[in-house]
Simulated scan of single mutants.
Amino acid sequence: MTLNPSSARAFAERPALMLRAEDVRKTFTLHGQGGIGIEALAGVSLDVERGECVVLVGPSGAGKSTFLRCLYGNYLASGGTIAIRDDALPQQHLAITGAEPHDVLRLRRNVVGYVSQFLRVIPRVSTLDIVAAPLVARGVDEDEAREQAAQLLARLNVPQRLWPLAPATFSGGEQQRVNIARGLIAQHRVLLLDEPTASLDAENRAVVAQLIVEARERGAAIVGVFHDEDTRERVATRVLTLAAPRAPIGLQAGMETHAVA
């Protein structure tokens, strides 16, 4: 799927535009149940500019997390287009709905950060190295990357005694703070945040909210889901309401479900 000409021009004509989603739809096929289709996302459109934080709201099952995963390329949209600014390319954007996997991975390394609800890391790797890894992948010296990781972990109230340890046995809140540190350390220009404060107490939610505000003030374009109303009100510049999906529908064969994991 390629962008229409007006959307492609928008990235050249609007320097602040970082993300454009047009009529994004997602349907999951239940192959074990006769190919029934579950519509998870129906026709969502969104532009996000530098310095904005758009918070997704809507009833449970409205597709908020699904939309974030489509924006990140974990899910391949069933319809519509998604493009993210990439000034390294001649056209100044990458249409991830039609991109090769290696291009999506490069965009994630350099432009787009994603924080999910759950920490997924390589076993037996220390917390400090997990958080430092996005900087190291960009070519930052390992000692410098670890120093920045230490500063961020300290700010997020992760005890120093835990930094040399793998986080598999940490509490849910500790793991989530490690996940947040890893997602924010590289200061990506686009941030996708899926309930990053869900397992945190009020004190640590406030710390995370402040970090998000600082990222926004640096010029990051942010799309997030926050079930905590206080956090949502603190970080949001505007809100996008998603409607509940329709009942299961019949599908044409051949629709894909996943893109780059």
Results as ranks from 00 to 15, higher is better:
47 D>S: 14
53 C>G: 02
49 E>N: 13
167 P>M: 04
259 A>I: 00
194 D>Q: 07
202 A>G: 03
203 E>F: 04
146 R>D: 07
234 R>W: 03
228 D>R: 03
229 E>F: 02
225 V>C: 14
122 I>G: 00
97 T>K: 02
84 I>Y: 10
242 L>T: 04
183 G>K: 05
196 P>W: 08
226 F>G: 06
200 L>C: 09
239 V>M: 07
100 E>D: 15
129 D>S: 14
107 L>F: 08
16 A>S: 15
40 A>C: 08
143 D>Y: 09
108 R>E: 10
228 D>I: 10
58 G>H: 08
17 L>Q: 12
158 V>D: 10
6 S>I: 07
216 R>L: 02
88 A>P: 03
210 Q>V: 00
242 L>Y: 04
186 A>V: 13
215 A>K: 00
140 V>P: 03
80 G>A: 02
236 A>C: 10
226 F>V: 01
146 R>P: 06
125 V>A: 02
214 E>V: 05
16 A>Q: 11
163 W>T: 06
136 V>D: 03
24 V>C: 03
100 E>C: 06
130 I>Q: 01
139 G>T: 03
156 L>M: 09
149 A>S: 14
61 G>T: 06
161 R>M: 12
23 D>C: 07
69 R>H: 13
196 P>Y: 05
195 E>R: 02
28 F>M: 03
218 R>P: 05
28 F>A: 08
135 L>G: 10
118 F>P: 01
86 D>N: 14
255 M>F: 02
134 P>Q: 01
15 P>D: 01
155 R>T: 12
196 P>S: 04
139 G>C: 08
50 R>D: 08
175 Q>V: 09
83 A>W: 06
19 L>D: 06
134 P>D: 07
160 Q>T: 14
130 I>Y: 01
76 L>F: 08
261 A>M: 08
249 I>L: 12
166 A>C: 13
249 I>Q: 11
94 L>C: 08
261 A>V: 13
226 F>T: 04
72 Y>G: 14
